[in-house]
Every structure is written in C-alpha cells, then in structure tokens.
Design a protein around this nucleic acid. Sequence first.
DNA 1: TAGATTGTTAATCGATTAACAATC
DNA 2: TAGATTGTTAATCGATTAACAATC
Lengths: 210, 210
Amino acid sequence: MNPLAIPEIVIKRLPLYLRTLRLLGDEGQAVTSSQDIGDRLGISATQVRKDLSYFGEFGKQGTGYDIQYLQQQLREILKIDRRWKLVLIGAGDLGRAVLRYTGFEEGGFSIVAVLDKDERKIGKQMGRLKVADIARLPEVLREHGVQIAIIAVPASNAKEVADALVKAGVKAILSYAPVSLSLPSHVHVQHIDPVLGLQSMTYYLDPGQG
Amino acid sequence: MNPLAIPEIVIKRLPLYLRTLRLLGDEGQAVTSSQDIGDRLGISATQVRKDLSYFGEFGKQGTGYDIQYLQQQLREILKIDRRWKLVLIGAGDLGRAVLRYTGFEEGGFSIVAVLDKDERKIGKQMGRLKVADIARLPEVLREHGVQIAIIAVPASNAKEVADALVKAGVKAILSYAPVSLSLPSHVHVQHIDPVLGLQSMTYYLDPGQG
DNA sequence: TAGATTGTTAATCGATTAACAATC
DNA sequence: TAGATTGTTAATCGATTAACAATC
C-alpha cells in the first residue's frame, strides 16, 4: 500500500554500505560495483542493488557506482548529512567509555551532556563535560534540541530512565542495558549487548578444546 | 536434509530467552508462559514455542515453563553451563572499558589475558591483568585453552589481528572494530558497532526537531 | 470438568536470489 | 561493437504466524 514503507532490514544495511564505501574511498578507489560492496560485506550483489533501488538509481550500467556520490546519497537518505546531538545517561565506567569512544563523533554524533542521578557524580567533570542531575533532563533536551539518548545505566535502572526519556520527548534510544524496553512505537530503540553475541557463538564451539 | 541444522536466527534468540528468564526469576516467579516471554521481548508466543521446539519439549500444557528448569536447559543448549575463557586484544580505552565491564563475567565469560602490540603498553598493569605482547598470542591461547577473542583495536589493525587470531586457532571473535572481517567459515564472528544502530535510527527521525 | 497452554502442522508472509533486458 | 554492470521482475526460499489437537 504505502510505497514509502521500506523494510527495516534494508534500512539497517545502509550504514554498512556507507561504511564500506568509506573504506573503499580510503583505499583510493573512485568507483565500485554492487559485487565489490557485497563481497566485502558477505552479501550478494543482487541484494545490494535491490536495497539501493528502493531509494533511486545511483549507478551507471557497465561502470558501477561513484563512491563519493553514493556516500553522499546514503548520508542524505539516512539523514546523517548533518550532525546529531546526543545525551548520555549514566556516568559510571560504561558511560566514561562511551564518552571516550571516538566512533560517535566520527559517525556524525556529538554527546552534548552527561546525566546521572547519583549525587556523588553530579557536578564532577567527565572529559569535556560536567555531569548534570538527571532531574534536569527536560531542560537539557530543550536547550540543546536533542532527540537521541544513550542509556549506560545498570539494568535495574534502565526502565525508569527510558520512561523518563520518553516523557521528556526523546525519539531514539541506544541502550547498553541488558533488558528489553517496551516503549511507545514512535520511539526507536537499539540495544547493544556484547554478551548476547558471545552466548550465541558458544553454541557452535566444541567445549573440549576450551 | 540435516535435522540438526537449526536456523541461526533461532540460536540468536536463545540468549534473549535466557535473559528474560533470569529477569522473571529475579522477580520471584517460578513458572512462566510463552506468552509472557514473548510479551517481554516483543515477539509472538508462537515464535517462542516454535524456537524451543527445535530442541525438545520443555513445558507442560496448561501450566507453562518452569523458569529454573528452562534456564538450565537453555544454558546447556548454548553450552554456557560452563565458564569460557577469553583473550582481549587491544589495551586502549576501549579495551579498558571491556575489561571493566562486569557483564562478561556475569554472562559466563572470563577474560584471562590482555594483549597489545604497543611496546609502551606491554607489561603495564590493567585491572587484575598485565598487558602481554601480542607476539605471545599462540602460547597464551595454548596455556589457557582459549577459543574466543575480543578485538578492541583500531579499525586499521583489525584485519591483521583477526588473521593472527585465526592462525593461532581462535574459533570465535567478538569484534568492536568497525570493519567487516572475511574469515574462514569455521570461525564465528560477531560485530559490535553502536554507531550503526544510531545511523539506522536517524532515518526515522524528523531533523526539524533536533 | 473447564480453562489454560503446549507442541506442531499448514498457510502466509516477506526477504533473497536468479535471470535478463537495458544501457553505459 | 563486446564486455560489464545496472535496475527490476518473477521465482524461490525461509521465517513467521494462525490454527488446533493434545493434555496438564
């Protein structure tokens, strides 16, 4: 019915294409093919072409894709042709690691505030930011015009924090807490849990050797 | 053909079921249902039952599943009814955060060594471990009987490190480096890249508000 | 017994892939 | 022109779900 409804699984592959294009560009190439992109990601050339075709025609028959051009197009599609501001909730070890990680900045995201509910942490300097009281969440979001939050608090607090974020108007959440958050459907959630990945790989391992 | 070939997507959901069961147990429940598990994960009860049915019959009609029993069964299926040893490659900020993160220990994994190639880091104490020279990788793996590695080095070094790991006999890799690793099919790889999750969520956001 | 819930089959749905005309 | 590669259709494949008998 809705010609604009693109499968979510396709949307999730676009950042992979973008990352691959960046690597290809770094290697000095100017042009690439669906075959080349697919090979590097372990997916088929057909799938790459099919995915891109949801958004338009970006290639040239017989030649392939201009790397810079396709990168720019994908950035626009994903709306990362601009910088997004984030707030980080949780000033513990995990929060500190998130703040230090340079990948967010490089990927187009800027952490503009760190908030915590622990009075002993509030006011402390963390990198270039000062930890703010989580009670100030609504005004911090408003001040900076932030729609995205990272949750880096213990599992036991994650639901409470997520509810507060939604109430304050956050539209997208990246959560490091190992719990499923059931939130209104208009709020987007991504989970990061490295342990889940390990726990599915052990299924395939031979314990005798470990 | 092969009755043992269970879809990978099913295997990947088992750790989620396990996590949900742990949370339910913590809440004091003794018995649960496929409906209850599904609700908490945002998937259908039918899918939960279907997934479990690949491995046996764990429930009781009219009653549901004994939480402790099902947990134990899933742990055995995933082979996490034992402790697995890991080596961590990369003693930078990211490596430090990984080492500090308690989720690995809680999930059944112990980091037994940290290795790096930077001479300035080798020999330094990091938490309870001393950073070892990556050149010692083969003997470290042999000594501890390790099959799993975590890659926490910059993207530019990840391929080289992954190849060395495979050569030294590692069978499973959890990589934090934002590059696709093309490795032999007998080596299992999971990637952690928080930026990919953010970059797919922005597609759905309204930039006007941010 | 009545109600609840499992395990499983068959139907449906959606994603991937094979094939190929178009065209650079 | 010949070769390469795109964009797209139709076929295939695989995953999810609806339905229900079995049974606690």
